[in-house]
Structures are given as structure tokens and as C-alpha cells.
Design a protein around this nucleic acid. Structure first.
Length: 830
RNA sequence: GCCGGAGUGGCGAAACAGGCAUACGCGCGUGACUCAAAAUCACGUGAGCUACAACUCGUGGGGGUUCGAGUCCCCCCUCCGGCACCA
């Protein structure tokens, strides 16, 4: 038997797989399983530990499913648009087209060397016109369905990336998700996708998803549905510019506190501010509005901030009490939520309370705390008081009554509000999908026709971002004709958020070669949704939410796509540095996989990724773990070498030769083998690769016990040989090149990666005798070996034979016996 | 503040469904092989008390349910993640 030389064995194994057709999928198969891993950004550096973890483990799962008989569709592609390539171009002058293509070539090769069986014929690269033209096509679909629109809104601006960002791409610290710079607010005209229209469907359809609860919860938080009331306060004509009475609509979740509303607060950006500000307050209001505009998102939403605000000089009339209350502006009220205005009830809202105290505004209690805790500001539900006819009602009853009254009087009523904002998809950057819209001085906003796609990304641009899109520097691109009137017009200079690319790429994979449509709906119906999707949980409220939204939106726009993209979702954990901190160059705790791969080969590294970590938890890196993985594979190699001769004999000739005198050892081996196989199979279904690997180690250890005695080995050739074969099969998804090598060297003509996953033999799982733990009064006092299926009397009798148990039994009378067959006997002695 | 997830040997971690806590691996110890070391192979390894057996304690802390709790219930602490001036 040849020793395992990974440098020659790994390419040889891949050659075998290629010839066996393992890199291609039959999408017409009945047993098709679409398993997908989030596609990577093609970064310049070689694969890092995180890539190895995610992609090799993913491939292991796919190989396991193939062996179990599924036709696995396991495609791969690149999320190739985006800032890194563009920033690299700014720094070096190398066009993103070029650097991206080079990076993809490197990554392709590395994934191949890892042993991954990605389907070559279904590759998707988002920065190619053959892909991004369909981004434009789908954009137009949404546009015509009224789901893509251009509007002026307060938006997040990253001063470092020089572009706007979607809400999802701003962290809760008010920083840019990409570069950590503080994000500021700007009022700009931008393109949006109408995701808010889908808020309720995104919530409702969660019940169909086999996703981690944590992730669904994050999406629920992000959508932030709340049930409340809209109510109109009137601003009398004498306060309003033009002398016309205005409506001030607010949203509240506590309409039952309306009798305690002692002032109103508008967001500084609220349109009514200009209309109602009185002359004597104008200077103060203008100054405050200007100051607010300068604040970053972070400053604005910091919870511990002192309340600030300015009186407008105007008043609004409470529709229930008829009283007039002052209208203030303050930055603690956000323009983007509800109606950008609130009724302030300082007695029952912490924020309003703080504001009222600071500015000396009246505080009127209208809710009685049923528990009489005597808090200064009671925010819980209670009993209404000083509330006219509603006094005495509970919070819940009061809300209902007031909602009804407001609706009946045309002053508002029950309403639902969401934290979710529409998805801002335009970016002032170069390396993305151009937006297929023309701005015509005569016709306005005009969409391109589908026959005019792709709208190619120009190459004659100045990259350096300067606050407007780089595309504007290409006159050839910008100047065009209006598709409607044929007159001179300008193109839209922005590009799409790269999350648009990743929101539907899984529909493109099965149809990657299709040139006249983004996807074939017949194929999509058969192949999608994705059965199992693997990726990081950092995408919970970005990619994973956008993709869900886009499926629903495309359906409404007339496309026959699944209404949910991913049935089952698995998140991988993160590999940390040896010091348990996140790996980073600045912390100096990064690990370069190549250092180990070049010494041990791909399979050792891959095996460590599988064995050393719980896939869903991750954990700290350890060099010892790599050594242990290398040692284990070498141990298996020595094991197989030592039984090589058993494979020289044809299988049936030795069929009945296992020796009866070794029955106990052999049945122990077969039990460890088949019970280990059974648990490993179950573990793999649940993505617990580490424990599955542990079962393989147990099987190996058990086999070693029999190896020492050549005579015994020869007498039990059949069982040992079958055990080693099963072990090789189990190892195949974990260390595929290595296992393939062993399979070859033991004389097998077939391709191991195409062999079936073994099935545990029930006969080997049945035990003749079992160890039953014996407890006295719940404390373990010994174990007895009894025949499997022995009843309570038999076990108890066996227990009495043991002096240590007997002395407890004799100490009193047996009051009760609990017997769980094969597990435990608990005797209660009094 | 609200919502998720987690806390188990010296270390990484197991425990399906309430039934022998610590599988598997690392590390450590002992032995074999070796002139020696490494590698390999075998055995041992939660703590306390012990000559051994036995016994006692032990899954973040405190209560509870149960014949029996890492696992279920209540309270609390710590860490990680999400949301948070969202009316």
C-alpha cells in the first residue's frame, strides 16, 4: 500500500471525481436537493480560516447528502460588485473589472483544491453584464409594479464611503456597517424598494421557516410592528401661515392617556414646522433645526442624552378635551417614525416626563396604577382617571373605546406602525449595477425598455468618489435619448446596492446559462426554494430580509418564484484567534490556512475545521487541534495498512469464517461501529460534525484493540474488513481525498464519493447483555450486567449479589422500586 | 430597558426524549519500543478523603418539582448577540 502523499493523492482524487461526473448536477432528478452556501465576495487575499470553515464544512454536508442518495445541487458564485474592488481601483488605478477577475480565478482554484464539489456549469458572477442586466430587468419589473420609486427622504450618508446607505447598513451605534465611520443624515432624492408594504407578510410567513429562532427574532425586532392609534390634533388658523387651520396627525400606542397630553412635539424636520412657527420664535426654531441637521445618527439617537427643544409659539387643540396645548420641536422625536410628531403625556411617558421637567411644562396624571407603587412617572397599563366619560376604564378598554370614537368622528383610529423603512437601493458609487432609468427634461423619469438592456457600466469614469456618482464623469454614459420622446436626456447616475444582486442569485444558479430571461420559471418551480441555506447570522436583517422581500415583490410583479427563498437556514459560528478574540491583523491573532495546508494537505485542515468546532458555535483556534487531526488521519492510515491483506481475499470466500471464540470482542466492535454510525448519521443531519468525527475516532480505537493479535485478526477477517469499509465511507465527506486514496489502495474499483452512506445494521445494535445502573434512594451504588430485556426481579436479584448494594438493601425495607429497562434500577429503602 | 443565545474538568467540548455527568480530542502522568529523544502503541486522568475499596462533593449562584435534574419551574449573577428617545 502506498503511503498517503497528499501532494499527488489530492489531485488524483479530484481527477476521479471529475471523471465520475461529480461536478455536475441533473436538475431534472426527482431526489434533487438544493443546498446552498452564501456566495463570497472575491477578495484579493487567499482564503482565510473563515472561508475554510464555511465552505469545506458545507461541502462535507453536501457530500454526506450525495452519499445518502440525493442529487445535490451545490452551485457556487461570486458577489463581485462592491466597494473593496472600487477602493482598490482608486488606490492603484487597476480597473475593478480586472482585479475582480483575477481574484475570482484565485478563489476558484482554491475552492477546487479544498475538494469542494461545486457545480462548474452553474457559476454566477454578479459583476458581469450577463448577470447584472437581470438586476436591471427585475428593477424594471418592480418599477412597473409600483414597488420601486424615487423620492426625497432623510437618508443615511457615509462620509467615508461617500454614498448613502440603507437603514439596515447602519449599525445600532450609528456607524457604517462597512467602514465604521459615523453616519450623518441628509435630505436627498433616492431610489427605494417598497419593503414596508411587505412588513406583515414578512412577519406572517416566518411560521413556514425552519430558521434559528434567534434570526427570526432579529427580523421581528427589525420590522418592529406596533399597534396603536392615529389621531388628528387641529392647529387653529390663527397660528398657521396663510391663515388656514392645519391638521397635526400623531401616532401613539397610548391613546388612553390623551387627556394627559399637555404639549405636542414635532420632529425638527416636520413639514408643519415652517407653517406654524410664530414670528417671535422663528430665530430660535431655525437655529435648532440647523443644529439638528448637523447631528449624526449616533448623536441623535443616544439614549442618555439630555432633552433639548424649542417652543414654536403655536398651539394645537386636543380633540378630546378641546384644550389648546403648546407645540414644541425636539430632536427626540424622529421624522422617520409614525408621523414625525407626538402628543406628549409627561405623566405616563419617561421621555415626555424628562422633557416637561426640563422646560417646566405641566404634568397631568390620567392613569391610576392599580398596584399603587407611587412612581413619579407611571408607564404601565392602569385605570383611566380625569378622562371625562372614559374615566374608570382600563387601558385596554379605553384604547378600544377611543379608537372607535376617533374613527367615528373622522379624527383617526386604530393604526399599525413599523420601525422598518423602505429599502434605499441607490448608491453614489461606481462598481455596481447602473439604474435603468433616464431623466428627460420633457417626460420626466422614463424607464428603459427591456430590449435596451443591459445598460452597460461605462469604463471611462473618474473613480474618486466626490459625493455624487462617478458615473456622472462619463459624458458618453450620461448623455442619451429619452426612450419616450427621443429628445436629449440624462441617465440616472447612481448604481444599485449590491444587496440587490444577492437577493435573487439563488434563482439564477439553476438557469445560469440562460441568455434571454433571468430564470426559467419551470426550472425555478422544480428546483427552488433552496432546501438548506448556510451562512453567517450577520445577514439576519440585511441579505436574509431583502431576499425574502424580493421573492414576495417579484410574485406581485408577476414572476412565478417561491414566496420564501430559503426553507431551512443554518448559521456557522466564527473561528476566533487562539486568544478567543475575533481574528484581525491589528490583534495579531490571524491564522493563515496555507501554512498548515502546505504541510498537511487540504484534508487535515478540513478535518480540523469539522472536528475542532461545533459548526454553529465556532470557537478559538488551536494549533494542537490541527496536530491532533493530522495524527488521527495518520492513525487511520496505519490501521488500514495493517489490515490491507484482508482486502486481498474476495469478500464472500471468508464469509462464514469469523471465529466463535472471539464473539464477545467482535460483537463489541460491531456495536461501537453501528451505534457510532447511527449517531454520526443523526449528528450530520443536525450539522454536528464534531461529534460525528468523535464517533469515527471511537470506531478506530475499537479496531485498534483487535489489531495487536495477528491470529485473531485473521480469524475475524469478515467483521474487521466490513468495519474498515464502513469507516472509510464515513470518512469520505470529512477527508474526501484521503478516504478516496484508502479506498483505491484497498483494491476498490468504484469511486468512494459515489458510494452509498452506510446504514446501521439493527442486528449489531442489539446487545445480549446490558449494564444497568443501580441506585439506592436516588444515589448510584453500583452497576449490574444483566441480559437485555431482563425484568425488574431479575435486575434486583442481580443487584443483591453485589455486597455494596446488598448492604444498603439490608439497611431497611424496600418501599418502592423504579426500573427503566436497560438504564436504571432505583430502589427506595426506608 | 426589551428580546434572543450561552455559562459543564487544567483546556476545546459531549450528554438523543428527566435515567450511570464529563463521550471524543488536547494536555498531563505511567509503562512498552529506543543508546536517547521524537513519533508510535498501551494504560490512567473531575475534586476531596484514602493503602485500596467505600464514602462525600460536583454542570454560574439560590430555591423548588421529582424515586431521580446539566436537562423542567421560580428568583438572581455573568458573558455574547440583536433592538432601543420608535411615541
Amino acid at each position: 500500500m502506498k503511503p498517503y502523499d497528499w501532494k499527488s493523492a489530492e489531485p488524483a482524487a479530484r481527477e476521479l471525481w471529475k471523471n465520475a461526473g461529480l461536478y455536475a448536477t441533473n436538475l431534472d432528478a426527482d431526489n434533487l436537493l438544493y443546498i446552498l452556501v452564501m456566495f463570497p465576495y472575491p477578495s484579493g487575499a487567499r482564503l482565510h480560516v473563515g472561508h475554510w470553515f464555511q465552505y469545506s464544512v458545507f461541502d462535507t454536508f453536501c457530500r454526506f447528502k450525495r452519499m445518502q442518495g440525493a442529487e445535490v445541487f451545490q452551485p457556487m458564485g461570486y458577489d463581485a460588485f462592491g466597494l473593496p474592488a472600487e477602493n482598490y481601483a482608486i488606490k492603484t488605478g487597476v480597473p475593478p473589472q480586472q482585479s475582480t477577475a483575477e481574484n475570482i480565478a484565485i478563489s476558484d482554484r482554491q475552492f477546487h483544491e479544498m475538494g469542494a464539489l461545486f457545480d462548474d456549469g452553474h457559476k454566477v458572477t454578479t459583476c458581469e453584464p450577463a448577470y447584472y442586466r437581470w438586476n436591471q430587468y427585475l428593477f424594471l419589473k418592480l418599477y412597473h409594479a409600483g414597488l420601486a420609486y424615487r423620492a426625497q427622504a432623510p437618508v443615511n450618508w457615509c462620509p467615508s464611503c461617500q454614498t448613502v446607505l440603507a437603514n439596515e447598513q447602519v449599525t445600532s451605534d450609528g456607524e457604517c456597517e462597512r467602514c465604521d465611520s459615523a453616519v450623518i443624515q441628509k435630505e436627498l432624492v433616492q431610489w427605494f424598494f417598497r419593503i414596508t408594504r411587505y412588513a406583515d407578510r414578512l412577519l406572517a410567513d416566518m411560521k413556514e421557516l425552519d430558521w434559528p429562532e434567534e434570526t427570526l427574532q432579529m427580523q421581528r425586532n427589525w420590522i418592529g410592528r406596533s399597534e396603536g392609534t392615529e389621531v388628528d390634533f387641529a392647529v387653529p388658523a390663527r397660528y398657521c401661515a396663510g391663515g388656514v387651520e392645519r391638521k397635526l396627525r400623531v401616532y401613539t400606542t397610548r391613546i388612553d392617556t390623551i387627556y394627559g397630553a399637555t404639549f405636542m412635539v414635532l420632529a425638527p424636520e416636520h413639514p408643519l414646522v415652517a407653517q406654524v412657527t410664530q414670528a417671535e420664535q422663528r430665530a430660535a426654531v431655525d437655529a435648532y433645526v440647523a443644529a439638528t441637521r448637523r447631528l449624526t445618527e449616533l448623536d441623535r439617537t443616544a439614549t442618555q442624552r439630555d432633552k433639548t427643544g424649542v417652543f414654536t409659539g403655536a398651539y394645537a387643540r386636543n380633540p378630546l378635551t378641546g384644550e389648546e396645548v403648546p407645540i414644541w420641536i425636539a430632536d427626540y422625536v424622529l421624522a422617520s417614525y409614525g408621523h414625525g410628531a407626538i402628543m406628549a403625556v409627561p405623566a405616563h411617558d419617561e421621555r415626555d416626563h424628562a422633557f416637561a421637567l426640563k422646560f417646566g411644562l405641566p404634568i397631568v396624571e390620567v392613569i391610576r396604577d392599580p398596584d399603587e407603587r407611587g412612581q413619579e412617572c407611571f408607564t404601565g397599563p392602569g385605570i383611566m382617571m380625569s378622562s371625562g366619560a372614559y374615566s374608570g376604564l382600563t387601558t385596554a378598554a379605553g384604547k378600544q373605546a377611543l379608537d372607535a370614537w376617533l374613527a367615528a368622528h373622522g379624527l383617526g383610529g386604530a393604526a399599525v406602525s413599523y420601525r422598518l423603512r423602505d429599502w434605499l437601493i441607490s448608491r453614489q458609487r461606481y462598481w455596481g449595477t447602473p439604474i435603468p432609468i433616464v431623466h428627460c427634461p420633457r417626460c420626466g423619469e422614463v424607464p428603459l425598455g427591456v430590449d435596451q438592456l443591459p445598460l452597460l457600466l461605462p469604463e471611462d469614469v473618474a473613480f474618486r468618489p466626490h459625493g455624487s456618482s462617478p458615473l456622472e464623469t462619463s459624458e458618453r454614459f450620461m448623455n442619451t435619448e429619452c426612450p419616450r420622446c427621443g429628445g436629449a436626456a440624462r441617465r440616472d447616475p447612481d448604481t444599485m446596492d449590491t444587496f440587490v444582486c444577492s437577493s435573487w442569485y439563488f434563482l439564477r444558479y439553476p438557469c445560469a446559462q440562460l441568455s434571454d430571461r433571468p430564470f426559467d420559471e419551470d426550472v425555478i418551480r422544480r428546483v427552488t426554494p433552496v432546501d438548506i441555506y448556510v451562512g453567517g447570522k450577520e445577514h439576519a436583517t440585511m441579505h436574509l430580509l431583502y431576499a425574502r422581500f424580493l421573492m414576495k415583490a417579484l410574485r406581485d410583479a408577476g414572476c412565478d418564484v417561491p414566496h420564501e427563498p430559503f426553507k431551512r437556514l443554518i448559521h456557522q459560528g466564527m473561528i476566533l484567534g487562539a486568544n478567543s478574540q475575533k481574528m484581525s491583523k491589528s490583534r495579531g491573532n490571524t491564522v493563515d490556512p496555507d501554512v498548515f495546508v502546505q504541510v498537511h494537505g487540504a484534508d487535515v485542515f478540513r478535518f480540523y475545521m469539522l472536528f475542532g468546532f461545533d459548526f454553529q458555535a465556532g470557537g478559538p483556534w488551536s494549533d494542537d487541534g490541527i496536530r491532533a487531526s493530522a495524527a488521527f488521519l495518520a492513525r487511520v492510515q496505519r490501521l488500514v495498512e495493517s489490515v490491507e491483506d484482508l482486502f486481498a481475499v474476495p469478500a464472500d470466500s471468508a464469509a462464514a469464517s469469523d471465529a466463535p471464540e472471539d464473539r464477545a470482542e467482535i460483537s463489541a466492535l460491531l456495536y461501537v461501529l453501528h451505534s457510532g454510525l447511527q449517531s454520526a448519521t443523526r449528528d450530520l443531519e443536525r450539522f454536528h460534525f464534531n461529534t460525528a468525527a468523535a464517533r469515527m475516532m471511537e470506531i478506530t480505537n475499537e479496531l485498534y484493540k483487535l489489531m495487536g493479535d495477528p491470529a485473531r485478526k485473521a480469524r475475524n477477517a469478515v467483521s474487521i474488513r466490513s468495519a474498515v469499509e464502513i469507516l472509510m465511507r464515513m470518512l469520505s465527506p470529512f477527508a474526501p481525498h484521503f478516504a478516496e486514496h484508502l479506498w483505491r489502495e484497498t483494491g476498490h474499483a468504484s469511486v468512494l464519493a459515489r458510494e452509498p452512506w452506510p446504514v446501521p445494521d439493527a442486528r449489531c445494535l442489539a446487545r445480549n447483555t446490558v449494564a444497568v445502573a443501580v441506585q439506592i434512594n436516588g444515589k448510584l451504588r453500583g452497576t449490574v450486567e444483566v441480559e437485555a430485556g431482563a425484568n425488574e426481579e431479575v435486575v434486583l436479584a442481580a443487584a443483591r449479589q453485589q455486597s455494596n448494594i446488598a448492604r444498603y438493601l439490608e439497611a431497611g425495607a424496600v418501599a418502592k422500586v423504579i426500573h427503566v429497562p436497560g438504564k436504571i434500577l432505583n430502589v427506595i429503602v426506608r
